[in-house]
Design a protein around this nucleic acid. Structure first.
Lengths: 254, 254
DNA sequence: ATAATAGTGTCTATCAGACAGTATACA
DNA sequence: TGTATACTGTCTGATAGACACTATTAT
């Protein structure tokens, strides 16, 4: 006899006590290195946390999130919560895993849907002033993992970090952390902020002049067709680039 | 004021009517090409479906699955259902997405957790005989997408297919469809069964002799240290290979 | 011998990686 | 002028891609 969902009747079974979503909101914070003038700022990956003010885990830091409504998808729930939390809507938001370990939530049987969001620093700027820093705060990832966190949120953050590290190297999500036009040095800094081990000697060459990878980014030209550059962070002006929208297709078999 | 899950109380909210899991079970079926002796069989990617015998979608084909218990994770539920369905436990089982569109299930508010399983043909062999073919059946992927399917299972299967196509080219999941020792031609056939567009002229060269990719597979040697080969599918014996367990690290930035 | 599949030799254009060197602008 | 950052020239060895060629076995 084959078992399947045909045997289901809602009355006979225990049902979940809610469908929460949790959101790991990443941003990259630039801090100016004032020692040297015209230097690229230091880039650091940070995570947004909220201090809980009621049971359970009262007083501990937790990921922002909320309960899915019957009338929405979990993606819509996550976007709604993200909007409430950061006041921004145009962000990279991505589902990455489900957490269903029995007992993970003292309030009952809660299967949590975990999202990660990548928010540009400038997008977050407005919000920061309007919020009490004791309730909502950005933490560098290294520090987050030392804090006592509510629920299984440490695991969620670790998993989210692995996910964006993998995607940073295999997709063009770096653009979520960059302005439309950026220099190669900025791109390099963003990648390193997410993947500290990343190091490429001939980075410019590979990303710009190799045929196999060409087409991911392109030089920005001005109205006259002349290459556009910026000397915001350097003595010599640096060529500006933009992502073309082309997504690379990677393969281990050729 | 910041909204978060602190405001939750189970009594005030509508809760889901269950936490189902659905499993897209893939296998690769080899059919001998009897016209030619000693020829590599034709490999075809197939999906296992179950014919529903009660409401809703009675009489339609659906993915196997079932309801998660309060005492288990969704992964445990999926593995339990997979064991009931196929009698095999040592298989690649992977969570790939959540489906929560309101109204997707006529029985109520059901947020479904979708898994994909990769089962070797030989692993499925025992089971096939024991099951009524009118209730459980393997379908080639092309045919599955033409059938009327229960729930949103067409979408699940399409998503699962994209996922294994991507992973087939970027990870070593091909091993789920292969015996421990295999020839390069078999590996090539498996990749093509999942990704029909895949074509590499110098496949052997790239997978075996290039330094950057070397280490993913290795030649099998016998007890005397001599290279081991097989002439099961060819006139001239072909070198046997095995996966080393090493997972390649891909990157678009070098 | 012929057929069928496995695998190698070899050539060219391109790429990776290293490192020295030049370019542009600020102080 | 020196300094800081942005690039470019150039060299060597490795790789991609094509295609002709040889190797091993069954019939």
């Amino acid at each position: 006899m084959i078992e399947n969902e045909s045997n289901y009747s809602p009355d006979h079974y225990r049902t979940p006590d809610g469908a929460p979503t949790d959101i790991v909101i990443f941003t990259i914070v630039s801090t100016e290195r004032s020692k040297v003038k015209k230097a690229l700022p230091h880039h650091e990956l940070q995570v947004l946390l909220i201090k809980r003010n009621i049971w359970p885990f009262e007083g501990q830091w937790a990921l922002p999130g909320g309960f899915t409504l019957e009338t929405e998808t979990v993606q819509e729930c996550a976007r709604r919560e993200l909007l409430e939390e950061t006041q921004v809507s145009e962000v990279h938001l991505e589902y990455f895993n489900v957490y269903s370990e029995p007992g993970r939530d003292p309030r009952g049987w809660m299967i949590s849907h975990a999202f990660l969001a990548l928010v540009g620093e400038q997008q977050l700027a407005n919000r920061q002033a309007a919020v009490d820093a004791s309730e909502v705060q950005l933490f560098p990832v290294a520090e987050v993992l030392k804090l006592p966190l509510a629920f299984d949120h440490r695991t969620l953050i670790e998993d989210a970090l692995l996910q964006i590290q993998r995607k940073m190297l295999t997709t063009t999500i770096a653009k979520a952390f960059l302005p439309d036009e950026f220099t190669i040095a900025e791109l390099y800094q963003v990648i390193q902020a997410v993947v500290p081990d990343f190091a490429e000697q001939n980075f410019i060459r590979k990303i710009t002049s190799t045929q196999s990878r060409s087409g991911i980014i392109e030089k920005v030209v001005d109205a006259a067709g002349e290459p556009k550059s910026s000397n915001l962070y350097s003595q010599r002006p640096a060529q500006l680039y933009r992502f073309t929208g082309l997504e690379p297709q990677l393969s281990i078999y050729g």
